[in-house]
Amino acid sequence: MSNILSSILTTSFAASIIRIMVPILFAALAASITEKAGVVNIGLEGTMSLCALIAVTCAWKSGSTFVGVLGAMVLGVLLSLMIGFFAFKFKTDIILCGIAVNTLGEGGAVLLLYLLTGSKGDTQTVMGAWNLPRVTIPVLSKIPVIGEIFFTNQSVLTYVAFLCVLLVWILLYKTPLGIRIRAVGENDHAADSVGVGVYKIKYISLILCGLLCGMAGAYMSMSYMTMFSKGMIAGRGFIALAAQAMGRGEPVGVMLSSLLFGFAQALANYVKGTNLPARLVEALPYVVTILGITIYAISTFNKARKIRARQEKKEQKKAAA
């Protein structure tokens, strides 16, 4: 036990949490934007998978990881728009649309992989390894501990992810688009009656979601790993949904819940080297997810009660005085 503790308390462990949480953070932010607009997009998993593949492919074709990220973002947008098209135009249940995209992400990615490389496993042999530039921020990296964790040798997308937390917050609360997104999510009739195109806003939220998912995918195949391999998303899209629910769709809340999942996964990875049952430990992040959303649900469930209890206390105090 003690050596687990000592390995957890290292900066490299903390850095690995960051590494793991980044794709979840991207996807959870993506889910937050759609959720605020009243769009339930559960196709994150499949979108990330296809984007991860496209990222490497575009990078390989162009020789630039930047183009890879761009390609992934474009595909992310296209897939999200597809969900929107079926859900809004054809009135397919949006959850089913999400499931469809996930199926596409699983089978379609392999199909595409095969068409591109002739292999059904990974892109390594044909396309080689691709890694986004790693950046160490000059001054900030000198800060003890924190500098080493956050600002040393992190993928560019890691910085982008944390920047996105701020950007999404500004978007939602300080811009006209944000007000409209929230209005559409809360009362779409109200938005409609003043000429805010409800579907337009929902599509825009899906586009933003696609952009973020694209970056999540690109991070997976060009930072987390250096290639695309079958099944590499491994439920991160679903975990992101849970992170969104736990963070109430608020950017900061979402960041904290992504951090929690990052921690659980990093812990599982570290423990794997010990004599604890390996496969059981791998289930840890998923268990944490269930616990997390349950605790969140209980807290909102009890909130109303607590408010009332507080009032009663106030009244009692008044009465006593």
Binding site: I179, E186, N187, A190, A191, D192, S193, V194
Partner: peptide
Amino acid sequence: HQHFMLVPSLTVAENVVLGM
């Protein structure tokens, strides 16, 4: 409308200017 077309969590001013 008979059922008000307002967004409860936004302020009066935000509701008035919503969309413009």
